[in-house]
């Protein structure tokens, strides 16, 4: 299922530091995460290390989320619907620039398992990139304190 509009455009608090490095305030930042499916998510073929509960976790944190895969758009929607996860976008592999144009965020991240189809596309589109194993260990996927 796909959210018509972001239910909450946010991602978490980020510390803002003054010229001397001291923490002077915290600001709300928006994080958008694009998930590859095969080799990245547990439901992929082959299965990846990111569980659907991890996806739910970042969704509940208010991240903008969606999938960017070579799977059909209807197939991607079917996966999200099966797992009752509302997402903000589903796109084909080459459409990360469209995602960036459509959604305003402070940080754009794509997680995938292929150098050519994930990392290169992501960096070219101005996304940060995480390998699935890196993502699992990232703060994004840790429960909020």
């Amino acid at each position: 299922m796909q959210r018509d509009t972001p239910v909450q455009a946010g991602g978490g608090l980020r510390g803002k530091r003054g010229y001397d490095g001291a923490l002077v305030q915290e600001e709300y930042v928006t994080v958008l995460i694009s998930f590859d499916i095969d080799g990245t998510l547990e439901v992929g073929d082959p299965p990846g290390p990111l569980t659907m509960d991890m996806v739910r976790l970042v969704r509940d944190k208010g991240f903008l989320i969606g999938s960017c895969s070579d799977r059909t758009l209807s197939g991607q929607r079917g996966i999200w619907a099966t797992h009752e996860i509302e997402v903000d976008f589903v796109v084909s592999k080459h459409m990360l620039p469209d995602v960036k144009a459509k959604f305003e965020a402070d940080t754009y991240v794509h997680i995938g398992d292929r150098e050519d189809l994930d990392r290169q596309y992501a960096l070219k589109a101005g996304f940060d990139f995480l390998w699935p194993d890196e993502a699992v260990a990232h703060d994004y996927f840790q429960p909020a304190p």
Partner: peptide, 25 residues
């Protein structure tokens, strides 16, 4: 047997080029 997914016009036409005008599907 494994991925009973339809391939509608939106699915087909949204796919990336492999060797334009041949796309992934």
């Amino acid at each position: 047997q494994h991925r009973p997914e339809e391939l509608g016009p939106e699915d087909y036409l949204a796919s990336r080029w492999i060797a334009k005008p041949a796309n992934l599907f």
